[in-house]
């Protein structure tokens, strides 16, 4: 039986833990709200870029651009977007498991697979694994600049035929409770079909359709990467929020149990003391 002092110590320490987890829950909730508004703020640009891109692709010869060219998939690159920080439940673990299954499944298809790891956690996890790493990035706060930097290297590599297919694995935000894992192949760019109801405006293109397309294709990849970063960040905060919420709840339960134990121990200590007093009094009488 642990002593009263030990029990009190444990109760206090679990209470402190609960304070921390509930504070983290609140911070995650605030950050989640900001991430969500970031996603919404990024939408108009993404929608517009895509619209312009589709209208351009349908007007030009799609074999023209190196990013549209399909090669025999011999070498693949996998981008894994995780988080910088831990304590967000199974957010990262699920993602890494998915990435490893993906690599296993595609061992036969590709001769060679390289990884691009985004987020400190991804870097740590794959550090000791036997995989080829192309690049490792830390996120900080997700910015378009970072997305642009990541993509610049990837685009250069694709154009120089260093690899033939690019896949991005990331968590898409649905709600604080659910994230949907995405495995998207983004390069080569899938041929696009113009939608029928799309506004058909006759534009004046300057300089020319081809040059515009050449500028827009990398841009659309960057926009996709930026969106993936934002979605992943929102998912991370959501996952952390739920993880911390259940941690706080569990801490509460542990505190409850410890308090019962503490009260019992206190009660039995009092009983023993009483018995001793009564026993002593009896002995004196006798």
């Amino acid at each position: 039986m642990p002593s009263l002092k030990d029990l009190r110590k444990r109760i206090n320490s679990v209470k402190k833990t609960r304070q921390i987890t509930s504070a983290m829950r609140m911070v995650a909730a605030a950050k989640l709200r900001r991430s969500q508004s970031d996603i919404i703020a990024a939408r108009p640009y993404a929608i517009k870029t895509n619209e312009v891109l589709v209208s351009l692709v349908t007007r030009t010869n799609p074999d023209m651009h190196p990013l549209l060219r399909v090669r025999e998939p011999k070498r693949g690159v996998v981008v894994v977007i995780a988080s910088d920080r831990g304590l967000c439940g199974s957010f990262n673990q699920n993602l890494f498991r998915k990435a490893e299954t993906f690599i296993k499944q595609n061992r036969d298809r590709y001769e060679d697979i390289q990884m691009v790891l985004i987020g400190k956690r991804a870097g740590d996890y794959f550090k000791r694994k036997n995989v080829a790493k192309r690049a490792v990035y830390t996120i900080g706060t997700p910015s378009y600049e970072l997305a642009s930097e990541i993509c610049d290297d990837l685009i250069k590599g694709y154009v120089n035929a260093e690899y033939d297919e690019l896949t991005i694995i990331f968590n898409e935000f649905r709600s604080a409770l659910t994230q949907v894992m995405h495995v998207d192949r983004v390069l080569p760019v899938e041929p696009m079909e113009a939608e029928d109801d799309m506004m058909n405006v006759e534009y004046l293109y300057e300089p020319s359709e081809d040059i515009l397309l050449e500028a827009l294709l990398p841009l659309s990849l960057k926009v996709f990467m930026y969106r993936a970063l934002l979605e992943s960040a929102a998912s991370e905060h959501g996952a952390r929020m739920t993880a911390m919420e259940s941690a706080s709840k569990n801490a509460g339960e542990v505190i409850g149990k410890l308090e019962i134990k503490y009260n019992r121990a206190r009660q039995s200590a009092i009983t023993t003391e009483l018995m001793e007093v009564v026993g002593g009094a009896e002995a004196l009488k006798g």
């Binding site: 312009v52 405006v201 006759e202 534009y203 004046l204 300057e206 300089p207 040059i211 515009l212 500028a215």
Partner: peptide, 15 residues
């Protein structure tokens, strides 16, 4: 080159 857009400009797309 720099360009200006006033009301009634032709549909136009540029970098």
């Amino acid at each position: 080159g720099e360009f200006g857009v006033l009301i009634g400009h032709t549909p136009f797309l540029t970098t």
